[in-house]
């Protein structure tokens, strides 16, 4: 029973990491930047969702509001910050680290502005359904209707994303400009707009991750909440495990990370919560630096 519980907790947490990892991968594929502000964007979207919940009273309206808000903000960041960055900071000793530094700066700006607008205290989003575990044969599982919901929504989103990428012209354009921007441009793909779209999709995915991370925890969130630092690190690690270039890899990486952390906490020590992701990342980087999917399959996704 404990084994099953651990596994289910891991899968739920892992599916949220997967969403975050997908956001990293979408941005990496479109602009070759690891967006360290991703968690800040997710946090901002969570505040959008909070506003929607408190005005309209429904989590189900808040979710699309947060997604749209997150997507618009991410698109704006790409249009303003990233294009300026490419123009100004692509030479000299700074070139290699400029995107990293710029996105970290953006993370700081987002956090400060959020604290200025909403204050630093904890706000609360109430989960739409119960987080009390299912009962089977008289014993209570940790797995709850809410966790099931998280899983279902993540799976639905993944299916929608893969339809978008595999079956539509837009998806073809997205894949083409990630794989070979120059050739895509020659064949009439508007690579710049497609890049913005990639960021927008990432913003939406991050928004869902942020909302679910909040309700899957205790429902509280604040600009300094450690949940979002953890979301940043876990999402990044999941993306790296998956090879940073593959959507399927991101999903598998997220699940692998979620389940591993869950087992470490249950069977070794719950005090290792913050250091476990780092150790798992180091092990993966040493054993399979190209990610679990590997380069070849990664290009296909």
């Amino acid at each position: 029973m404990q084994l099953l519980n651990t596994l289910l907790i891991g899968i739920t947490a892992g599916s949220i990491y997967s969403l975050m990892a997908i956001a990293f991968v979408l941005v990496w594929r479109s602009t070759r930047v690891v967006n360290f502000a991703q968690a800040g964007m997710a946090l901002l979207s969570t505040y959008f969702g909070y506003e929607a919940v408190s005005r309209l009273g429904s989590f189900w309206i808040a979710l699309p509001v947060a997604m749209i808000g997150g997507a618009l903000f991410a698109a704006l960041v790409e249009l303003v910050l990233m294009r300026l960055l490419v123009k100004h900071a692509s030479s000299g000793p700074i070139a290699g680290v400029a995107p990293i530094i710029a996105t970290l700066g953006l993370l700081g700006v987002i956090r400060s502005v959020i604290s200025m607008i909403w204050g630093g205290q904890d706000l609360r989003i109430v989960a739409p359904i119960s987080n009390n575990g299912f009962t089977i044969n008289g014993s209570t599982l940790v797995f709850s209707p809410l966790k099931l919901l998280v899983l279902v929504v993540v799976v639905v989103l993944l299916i929608l994303l893969s339809i978008l990428f595999q079956k539509t012209n837009l998806g073809l354009a997205l894949r083409a400009s990630a794989h070979a921007p120059e050739i895509a441009r020659l064949s009439g793909v508007r690579v710049d707009s497609v890049r913005t779209l990639g960021w927008a999709l990432a913003g939406a995915a991050g928004a869902v991750a942020g909302l679910f991370q909040t309700v899957n925890g205790n429902g509280n969130f604040s600009p300094d909440s450690i949940d979002f630092s953890l979301l940043l690190v876990s999402g990044f690690i999941a993306a790296v495990i998956g090879g940073l270039d593959s959507l399927l890899g991101a999903v598998l990486g997220g699940l692998f990370l979620g389940i591993s952390i869950s087992f470490v906490l249950m069977y070794i020590s719950s005090g290792l919560f913050f250091i476990a992701p780092f150790v798992i990342l180091l092990i993966v980087l040493f054993v399979r630096p190209q990610g679990i999917i590997g380069v070849k399959a990664g290009r296909r996704a």
Partner: peptide, 22 residues
């Protein structure tokens, strides 16, 4: 007031990278 220093530091970071990168 409490968040202004953080905003200035981060804002400066972005502006420096963009306009005086080196």
């Amino acid at each position: 007031t409490t968040n202004l220093p953080g905003l200035i530091v981060s804002g400066l970071l972005i502006l420096t990278v963009l306009f005086v990168p080196n």
